[in-house]
Design a binder for these strands. Structure first.
Lengths: 115, 115
DNA sequence: CGCATATTCAACCATCCGGTTGACAATCCG
DNA sequence: CGGATTGTCAACCGGATGGTTGAATATGCG
């Protein structure tokens, strides 16, 4: 089976742009959680949180596994790697060779997705 | 003078979520540019690019300085630090390895010299 | 001055986004 | 079975977003 396509930077950054979703990711740093438990601290409907989780899953930032009637949400921090790598292209490099830098990013990303 | 308030992660990530804006940032890695020149490679109106630049400026990712009738756009990579730091709280991934980049450049050079 | 250039402003439009509510599906349990 | 629990789906709503066009502003230049 072909692996799912790596989510785009568009998708990842957009997912990270919402404070509720970032808070969810932070919560998941401690442990996997069921959807209901994720929703518990927020003053939002369960459906709203469910949609946020969907967004995070589409960005590859979490995975969801159904066990019984409970869906467990798990942080997938590797998905942040693409974004981190992209951002680190700024600030830490002299503007040496942009084309080479972009090829380097691609090689880094393909390494990451093969792991 | 009080410094401008640091843009929120919301603002920064949202600014980075658009491919046109990321492309602009990449262009600015090479050099400061006038608005018109930034717009040149894109199939969008100048006004659209102007709005993108506004968004990037509000996120602190670029600054704009008017000299004559030309507004020069300058990358402000420090603005990405907040986002980078936040993300690195997740992946235990080590920051991008400059040595790896240099080895990549060398391997590319030797490949290229054979073609 | 008067025209060309550089950029933004303003109004408008279609679409997306984050949220709601209510119905539905699936699963556990008495 | 039947009821409670878990989670998603569908429709809807208001506001944000990304784009357009045309007018307005500011500067440079002959």
């Amino acid at each position: 089976m072909a692996p799912p396509p790596a989510p785009s930077l568009d998708t990842i950054f957009a997912a990270l742009a919402d404070p509720t979703r970032r808070a969810i990711l932070t919560m998941l740093l401690e442990d996997d959680m069921a959807v209901t438990d994720v929703a518990q601290p927020f003053q939002q409907s369960l459906a709203a949180i469910s949609k946020h989780l969907q967004t995070l899953a589409e960005a590859g930032l979490i995975s969801r596994e159904k066990r019984g009637r409970v869906i467990w949400c798990k942080l997938e921090p590797d998905a942040m790697r693409a974004a981190t790598v992209w951002m680190q292209g700024f600030g830490q490099f002299e503007p040496l060779d942009l084309d080479a830098f972009e090829r380097f990013l691609e090689s880094e990303l393909s390494e990451g997705s093969e792991g």
